[in-house]
Design a protein around this nucleic acid. Structure first.
Lengths: 176, 176
DNA sequence: AATATTTATCATATCGTCATGATCTTAGCT
DNA sequence: AGCTAAGATCATGACGATATGATAAATATT
């Protein structure tokens, strides 16, 4: 609804890494091919996630990108944060000092909806996004992502990732 | 939260017209001064609202902009619609065919929040936005905006419009 | 040390939004 | 008819997001 295309690429890339990078880093080329995205632009996007502490990058042969935290401890909010438009609409009326002490007419109702969206981003984890997306055999774990440094407990049970061959669906970009 | 500055200007301009234009059209210059916005840009913005059927424009001397419908019958959605970004985020995962029959993992939960925002815009009227915004003497009428042609019942009580002389404060532009 | 692989970064291009200033058009007024 | 107050429109540009291609830097392998 309100995510730019870069933020969507970021989400999809993280999800791809989550699925395919359980043991080794995932190369940008592979992700770019799977997402039908431009390699270098995606590289820059992923690097922003490295700076945000979401990913870790490994250079050189057998390098690539890895998750820093467990998927269940990674909120969507942390993934999209670097790509959100800087200026948020604080007040629908444009009143500069609309806030707790001096709310405008719609302030409270607006806050309730807006906070709902923020809460969704913060309470939805990468693991949940992936949960029953084609592989419903995993038990539905509704683990809430933690904000603090995650304890990085990745379950040793590495389920055989159904290596689907990067279906190459086109990015549905708007026509020129 | 996700309104561009043009959409915010539009909301504030409509609100200003609602307050000051009970009898006669309101000039762009007056609105631009009150909103600290650029005159010509606001003119274009308001003209988009004319094309959207929200405002009516009167050219020539004593011209200006007027509401077409009663404030209680004008939803915020209709005001901001022309300025919303064209591309909505249909699916958080970027799946091109995510939808009713084939939803992604987060589809339903995402839809619930996103629909909440849309509902807010559609169920909030200009009158509600203005309701107790400094003038709490009016009875709190929570009239839902109607989509159909409003019955245009405007109360005959025209309070004297405090004609402030277009204070001409500068547009607070960011430095080059 | 040389090489191959892979990320990091730089220069550049394109596009949409936001915005300004100049000019055209409309219509009330005398 | 002419003047004038107003909106309508056009040309232009700043700016950020998006995107591509070339090059630099790091590192595993040999």
């Amino acid at each position: 609804m309100w995510l730019g295309s870069t933020a969507q690429h970021a989400v999809r890339a993280v999800l791809y890494i989550t699925e395919h990078g359980t043991d080794a880093p995932v190369r940008v080329d592979e992700i770019a091919a799977a997402l039908a995205a431009a390699r270098n632009y995606l590289s820059k996007t992923l690097h922003q996630l490295v700076r945000a502490g979401v990913l870790r990058s490994v250079r050189g042969p057998n390098g690539g990108f890895q998750l820093v935290d467990a998927p269940s401890a990674l909120s969507v909010a942390r993934i999209v944060a670097p790509f959100l438009p800087s200026q948020q609409t604080r007040c629908l009326m444009g009143r500069p000092n609309c806030g707790g002490a001096n709310p405008c007419a719609a302030h409270h109702r607006w806050r309730r909806v807006a906070d709902g969206v923020v809460a969704f981003f913060e309470q939805t984890s990468a693991a949940q996004l992936l949960a029953d997306n084609g592989t419903p055999r995993t038990a539905r774990k509704t683990a809430r992502p933690r904000q603090g440094p995650a304890s990085m407990k990745r379950p040793a049970t590495k389920r055989p990732v159904t290596k689907r061959p990067a279906t190459k669906h086109r990015a549905a970009r708007r026509p020129t």
